[in-house]
């Protein structure tokens, strides 16, 4: 058993890191030398992971161009072997990798944009949730309202950045205008990733909305969440926030908390 593990580990190192094979690898194609066969295998391995990254990070690919993206991807693949049998799980560490990737240092917003893209990628594959039924909310009496706890759609993600990453993401949306004008100095943003009618959407949240939603995410009851938010942000408008989050399919259910 140990021998098999050792052999598989050597084979993996040969493929992933390009090391010389330590043991003879049986090659069933007589026309190929062992080295050629390994190169073909390695390039398929890299090609598949590159394509998985390109599928998860289409905006990053457009931002930096195909050649740069390919180089970035190959460097990433070298240091990050696939750890799941599901290729959709591959690439979670790319935002951190981008942040430390020397050739991308000039593009300060790239790592945060990648974080947003990964959130969108995860949102796409997140579990389904039932649509919110307002009748469910209507059944509670006013004195029960402070104790209500909202269920949020599993696709919901919040990404903060010093840069206008939602505008960057939206500018690269297939339906977006080809010519966009974004000034990186236009300020920070809080991007809310959500999914409604099978489409991942990105909208901006205000600071009070994000503060409130963070508490709702941790299942703090409505009364406590709202009061704490109002203490910090007296301008917080609960009604518009509720309407927005129901419309965006972020709130999917409500129950009476313990």
């Amino acid at each position: 058993m140990t021998e098999l593990i050792d052999q598989l580990s050597h084979f993996a190192q040969t493929i992933v890191q390009g090391k010389e094979p330590k043991t003879q690898i049986t090659n069933c194609y007589a026309n190929y030398s062992q080295n050629t066969a390994i190169e073909v295998y390695r390039n398929n391995y890299r090609g598949n992971l590159h394509d998985a990254l390109a599928g998860a990070y289409p905006v990053i690919k457009l931002l930096v161009g195909d050649d740069f993206f390919r180089m970035l991807a190959l460097k990433f693949i070298e240091h990050n072997p696939s750890r799941s049998a599901n290729l959709h799980h591959y690439g979670a560490e790319l935002p951190d990798f981008v942040a430390s990737f020397e050739p991308a240092q000039a593009l300060a917003y790239l790592s945060d944009t990648a974080t947003l893209e990964w959130a969108c990628h995860c949102a796409y594959f997140a579990n389904d949730a039932p649509l919110f039924n307002l009748a469910q909310l209507a059944q509670f009496a006013p004195d029960q309202h402070p104790y209500l706890v909202f269920d949020l759609h599993p696709a919901t993600r919040i990404v903060r950045s010093l840069y206008p990453i939602s505008a960057i993401w939206l500018a690269h949306h297939p339906d977006a205008e080809v010519d966009f004008q974004i000034d990186l100095n236009s300020g920070s943003c809080i991007a809310l990733v959500c999914r409604r009618f099978n489409k991942v959407e990105v909208i901006n949240l205000s600071e009070p909305e994000a503060y409130w939603l963070h508490q709702i995410l941790t299942e703090t009851p409505l009364g406590g969440s709202t009061m704490t938010t109002l203490e910090h942000y007296p301008d917080f408008n609960l009604q518009t926030t509720l309407v927005k989050l129901v419309e965006m399919n972020v709130i999917t259910g409500v129950k009476l908390g313990a």
Binding site: L63, V64, A106, Q181
Partner: peptide, 17 residues
């Protein structure tokens, strides 16, 4: 090859540090 991003990042004003 020289690593220079050549995508739409050129369109983002003040985008290079």
């Amino acid at each position: 090859f020289v690593a220079v991003p050549k995508g739409t990042c050129n369109k983002i004003a003040n985008g290079s540090l």
